[in-house]
Design a binder for these strands. Structure first.
Length: 164
DNA sequence: AACGGACACAACCGCCTTGCT
DNA sequence: GAGCAAGGCGGTTGTGTCCGT
């Protein structure tokens, strides 16, 4: 017995989104807001899973997205944040306005990993690949892990307040 | 021009967390 | 406190494009 599926798979589209589906989703969210994702597809007339709609909106259709190439500053920031937080892509994305967790995750796996390897740095541990001499570890020029944790809590509190 | 491998990115899957009853 | 539903997240896969041969 597995867990129940998040939606009725037999009647949902999969794969790339069409322009028409995008338009439907955008116009529905513009007039109704991001309500219940599970019921949204039906209400918007989409044959998609709610999760799929959410992902599409969050990652590609939101009006405040930056898109386009990452700057060197963003590169370095991502590396620093990753050394602090690990694979917490949503937290990292929270520090990069206009960027999404999925976008950063992809960018990390395709560009930054290789960049670090070229520098002789292990992308997982942020330590030099040839011998872990602690002074060579990627240095953090701002904040501490504890400080980051505090801010995470604060963000959580704010979003909770916002909902009330 | 054709082919195959590498690369980039959109999307899905399944687990975990959170909130409600 | 237990159980369930829904949302959120990270890992992974699928597919289109680019580039070298």
């Amino acid at each position: 017995m597995g867990r129940s599926p998040c939606c009725e798979k037999a009647h949902t589209n999969k794969g790339a989104w069409t322009k028409e589906e995008d338009d439907r989703l955008i116009s529905y969210i513009r007039s109704h807001g991001e309500g219940c994702w599970r019921s949204l597809p039906k209400a918007a007339g989409l044959l998609r899973c709610g999760k799929s709609c959410r992902l599409r909106w969050i990652n590609y259709l939101r009006p405040d997205l930056k898109r386009g190439n990452f700057t060197d500053e963003e590169d370095e920031l991502i590396i620093k944040l990753h050394s602090l937080l690990g694979n917490k892509w949503s937290l990292i994305a929270g520090r990069l306005p206009g960027r999404t967790d999925n976008e950063i995750k992809n960018y990390w796996n395709t560009h930054i990993r290789r960049k670090l390897l070229n520098r002789g740095i292990d992308p997982t541990t942020h330590r030099p690949i040839n011998g872990p001499s602690s002074h060579e570890v990627t240095t953090i020029s701002f904040g501490s892990a504890a400080h980051m944790k505090e801010e995470e809590e604060e963000t959580r509190r704010r979003s909770k307040d916002h909902k009330l």
